[in-house]
Computed example of a mutant assay.
Amino acid sequence: MSESNIAVVIPCYKVKTSIEKVISDIPSVVRRIYCIDDCCPDKSGDFIEEKITDPRVKVLRNNVNLGVGGAVMHGYRAAHDDGYHIAVKIDGDGQMDPLLLPAFVRPILNGEADYTKGNRFYNLRYLESMPAKRLIGNAALSFISKISTGYWHLFDPTNGYTALHLSLLDLLPFDKISKRYFFESDLLFRLNIARACVKDVPMKAVYGDEESHLKINQILLPFLKGHLKNVAKRFFYSYILRDFQVASLNFILGFILFFFGIIFGSIEWLQSIETGEPATAGTVSLAVLPIFIGVQLVLSAINNDILNVPRAPLHPTLEDETLPPQ
């Protein structure tokens, strides 16, 4: 594979003030730049076609607003159909430095990863410019994402600076992947189900005066709901349907014992309050021991899950079968 097979995907929604500089900074190694006008009220697509003369730019349009995920997947499909092997997703708001692109592409070119994503937490110096609210929110989401996606070694799951080997598109159910702000986290979950190898790339984000379209109060519950659903689906796919193993039993028995101890102990505690009689040592033991054993079994299963992170890239064996020759 040569570096000439690299394309960039830029979802465009209210980015007229920044898109020109973003495109001008994209390295010459990139041969195609897909700008997706996601039914933008500012007509970003028309603006790009009128103002930007870079011959690499191709404007795509969504007839309805699909969200960042819908725009990115539109770009992925176009890049795949046009014969490109790697698609790098960069936002059009100027928060991502296009000059970092080689760092995202290199692990894929070297056969070390199928998908790379930015990590703004890798170096403490990178956190100086991050607003405190984003810092706390991303840290919390990162921990939840580790559980739902199975990529325990990753951080900053909502980071939108990514690169994907396009041979994996045939393994991803595009019609089921979230098209809104949960896109990055949901895509990681789908990549884990496909057993794709994912790697973090250290980066520094830029925060300027641009207006954020992400409202925490609007996405908090959908994010929690999405992660909970993915936890259940990943457990079923990975530990029941695909491979029933000791870790599967540890998860099941661990949760049964844990909740039995909680429920039984709560019932006995309430009865003790009503009757005024303290619980016997045997009753206390019957409540506490299942909790302790259950926690130990679940921790053992989680340790197995951490060791089970996909580490072998898929694309070296997929690209000859799924990508057209150039």
Rank of each mutant, 00 (worst) to 15 (best):
S142G: 15
T158A: 15
Y161G: 01
S185E: 15
L188N: 06
P157V: 11
L172H: 02
A194I: 05
N110C: 10
K133N: 12
P107A: 02
D97Y: 06
D91F: 05
S145G: 11
G150K: 06
N138S: 14
M130R: 13
F174C: 00
K179D: 11
P107S: 02
G118D: 03
G111M: 07
E184S: 13
D186Y: 08
S142C: 07
L109S: 03
H153R: 13
Y122E: 13
F121G: 05
I144W: 11
G137I: 06
L171I: 01
L188H: 08
S178E: 15
R134K: 14
D114G: 09
S167G: 06
L166C: 01
P102R: 02
L154V: 08
K89F: 00
E112V: 05
N119T: 07
P157E: 12
Y122K: 12
I108H: 01
I147R: 03
A140H: 11
A132I: 15
G150L: 04
K176A: 07
Y181H: 15
W152R: 04
R120D: 08
A139D: 07
Y161L: 09
Y122D: 09
A113S: 11
L187I: 10
L166W: 02
V105R: 00
L99V: 09
P98I: 00
K146Y: 03
P173A: 00
L171N: 01
L135K: 14
W152M: 03
I90Q: 00
Q95F: 10
A132D: 11
D97E: 10
L187K: 09
P98H: 01
G137C: 08
E184R: 12
E128H: 12
G92Y: 02
G118L: 06
L100Y: 05
A103R: 11
M96E: 14
L135D: 09
D114R: 08
R180L: 15
F104M: 03
K133H: 12
E128Q: 14
W152A: 03
R180K: 15
S145A: 13
I177T: 02
E128S: 13
P131Y: 13
L135A: 07
A103K: 10
L109R: 05
L101S: 00
N192Q: 08
R125I: 10
P102K: 02
E184D: 15
H153C: 06
G111A: 10
R125D: 12
L99Q: 11
M130N: 10
D97F: 10
S185P: 04
F182C: 12
I136V: 13
G94T: 07
L154S: 06
H153E: 09
L191G: 05
T162C: 06
P102Q: 00
T162Y: 02
M96Q: 14
M130Y: 09
N138D: 14
R106Q: 09
L172F: 00
D91A: 03
A103G: 01
L166I: 02
F183C: 11
L171H: 04
N123R: 11
Y126E: 11
G92F: 02
P98D: 02
G92Q: 03
D97V: 07
H153I: 04
F182H: 14
R190P: 01
W152N: 04
P98A: 02
K179G: 05
M96N: 08
S145P: 08
R120S: 12
H165I: 06
I136M: 11
G111N: 07
A140R: 12
K146G: 05
L172P: 00
